[in-house]
Simulated scan of single mutants.
Amino acid sequence: MSTTDALIQYRRDIADLKQRIKNRRLQVIGLYGTPILLVSSVSVGVIGKVYFWLHSDVPSAITNIFGGFLAFCVLATVVQFFAEFSVDTPWEDAKTSLKSLRLDLELAEERRILEARRLTPPAIERQSSYRERLPGEIARLRVESAHYRRLHLFMQWLLFVGSAAVSGVTAWYDPPQPAKGILIVLGSIVTVVTAASGYFKPRERAFNLQQTADSMEQHITALELGIAPYNYVDDEANMESFATTVERLRAEQRMREQQLDQPQQGQREVI
């Protein structure tokens, strides 16, 4: 097995263990939660009968709904206990504790780290592989930028329409009834959208993501064409400079995102 295949297999094993932990967590929640829900429902039914219908019959609609819910809980409990404790269980990790699975995950990650250290290719190969992953990163940045741009446009159109509708409804109705409710709703929409736009800053996020994607794409093109700043004779020097520059761009992008997540006072302090 080649170095690449070995590392890929370790990643697959780790991903499989993480999925098994998620599945087992849901199984345990259902296994213990459904009987507890069943007992709690019966207790609630008894309390309701005592406090509300002690001297009368429970309405048939409530009886049917409550009975159907109890039947579902009983059926779910039986099915889950059968799946957990039967000989031919359909569950992959039946009778296995989450602690054991988490330990297996930690050991798998530790093996991956040790094998990656032992099988690590030369720096020039890692840098070349890094360059090949960048188009996917650029595509992700562009998708996020387009998402925030659309969100910003949607918020702006809500503001435009809401503000115009408030003025229009105010001018149309005199006295304001029955439009008072409409004015309250429109005014609330304008206020909420204005506050959300100022807090989440989708326009600034879209601009930063697009700027980072364009810069990374520019450096990739320069590296492929062998132009400045990647016109060294030594390819290793070009790749090292390229990887350093791209990581700096990504760090700057993360810093801008952190600044946008902070309040205005915090942003001024950071800047």
Rank of each mutant, 00 (worst) to 15 (best):
A164I: 10
A83D: 11
L141G: 00
G68W: 08
S86E: 05
V246K: 08
V79D: 12
N208L: 05
W91Y: 14
G30I: 00
V74I: 15
I271K: 11
H147C: 02
M155T: 04
I184A: 14
S145Y: 03
L26V: 02
T96A: 06
N64L: 14
S43N: 07
I21G: 01
M155D: 11
T4M: 00
N208E: 07
A116Q: 09
V190D: 10
Q127W: 00
R112N: 07
V190T: 09
K49R: 12
A116D: 09
A237K: 14
L17A: 04
R140W: 03
Y130A: 06
L260T: 06
L223P: 03
P229Y: 06
V270H: 12
A228W: 04
R102C: 01
E137G: 01
P35W: 01
A76Q: 02
W53S: 13
P263T: 15
Q264E: 12
V39F: 00
V39M: 03
I138D: 01
I62L: 13
I65K: 14
W157F: 08
V50I: 15
I189D: 04
E125V: 15
L107V: 09
G48Y: 10
I14S: 11
Y232M: 14
L37W: 02
S86P: 06
S167L: 14
L260P: 03
G187W: 11
S60Q: 13
V42E: 08
A165Q: 02
S56D: 15
I189G: 06
I65G: 01
I271A: 12
A83N: 15
R268Q: 12
I14A: 05
A116N: 05
S41N: 05
A222D: 13
